[in-house]
Design a protein around this nucleic acid. Structure first.
Lengths: 223, 223
DNA sequence: ACTGGATCTTCACAGAATGTTCACAAAAGC
DNA sequence: GCTTTTGTGAACATTCTGTGAAGATCCAGT
């Protein structure tokens, strides 16, 4: 069963949306402000979709989306009171997947939720393969040329984050925010040390982790 | 480079949409009716996204989408003249991923295309293309005629700044303020040195960086 | 609560890569 | 031809990354 987190400060709205989605067979989790949404998302694992109201106390919908995008690709639907193009553009840049302006009919909402989940569901493999490097997120296996590696938790999560962003250059700060707690205050160079260990353990596939001088690192498969 | 198939019977519309997307670094293939779209899609491999007009001769957009969904998960954006909810619902059920109603601004289109491609897993695009010179801000790669360059951080940022101001003459001071720390106190001629290195690395595309005597430099694509 | 081992973090140093300056050559404008 | 401006190469300065090791922290088993 798919789990959906709804964040809206109006209880009436949460109930309306929630009821409709429950009827469609989804499990609903509610948050009444942005901060709560962030906390719940971080603690509860396996949330499949987020519905965020733009206007919320503590953190607004944009902020919540931005924070979550630092470490997750979970689909996000944003609810907004008015339909302004500038807002919409802004949202897409933050990584909002859908955009529904109030008032909306529940059918439209349900249709978009289904469409979004269908889309995501099709390319959600728990096993990723990169030319001799296989990663199974569920069983936490990493295989290099078929040989199982023994990675520490941090190393594993670092590798996951890098591969999720294959081809993208990531700054040390981005990596820290994503792999460590997002309010981690420590030495940025810690990333380097973990990269070093990861490269070592990955052996020949360590070259997939490239240094982007002046910025950070990038994962890219070398053929 | 991502390839996009545009199917619309109005040539004017194909051109409008196509031009905007080309400027974003996509490769555009056109079809003037539904039947042609289906044929092209089946023959050409590696099409990354479909933009379909609802109203077309031969087969309409819905039909094309339904047919293609039988064997492909390629993302589909549907263009429609009016924004009716019933149509939208109908479309989501057929497997339409996005839905844009005319008239629309090209920015919204580009934003949705990027959002969709990002979602699908192919990487997103901050890619700019200038006649043989491609710049991908995400991966921090710069390609000249398809070959990757190795630029230093300063060189990269300088190039970004120049291209962002394509066609505009920029003084050395402007460049210093933008690319270096804004309270940088150093030799203005440092810019010259970096321009030199950049031109060298860009090879034949180095000519896009023109000297504006008495002022500074200007980036302009030479056809 | 204790202990030993694994893991994580910090730090300093070396070497490499990059950035800056400067002097002179070349080019452009008058 | 003279002056001003830009191109260029090399020397020098600075910054950044890789690395190893030491110390801190976490965790499972007792």
């Amino acid at each position: 069963m798919k789990r959906i987190l709804i964040a809206d400060d109006e209880e009436r709205m949460r109930k309306l949306v929630g009821d409709f989605l429950k009827r469609e067979g989804f499990q609903i989790i509610e948050a009444s402000n942005g901060k709560e949404a962030l906390e719940i998302f971080r603690e509860e694992s396996g949330i499949d979709l987020l519905i965020l109201d733009v206007m919320m106390p503590e953190y607004d919908g944009w902020t919540v989306c931005r924070e979550i995008r630092k470490y997750s690709l979970v689909p996000v639907i944003m609810l907004t009171a008015r339909s302004e193009e500038s807002d919409e553009l802004f949202g897409f840049e933050l990584g909002v997947d859908e955009y529904i302006s109030k008032p909306f009919s529940p059918q439209v909402l349900v249709a978009r939720v289904n469409a979004l989940l269908r889309r995501i569901g099709k390319n959600s493999h728990t096993v990723k393969a990169f030319n001799g490097l296989e990663i199974d997120e569920n069983s936490r296996y990493v295989l290099v040329d078929g040989i199982k590696l023994n990675l520490t938790p941090k190393e594993f999560e670092l590798l996951i984050y890098l591969t999720e962003n294959e081809g993208r250059a990531l700054s040390r700060d981005q990596i820290l925010n994503a792999v460590w707690d997002f309010n981690y205050y420590g030495d940025v160079r810690t990333v380097d040390t973990h990269i070093k260990k990861l490269r070592l353990k990955l052996g020949s596939k360590g070259e997939y982790i490239q240094t982007v001088r002046g910025l950070g690192y990038r994962f890219e498969v070398i053929k």
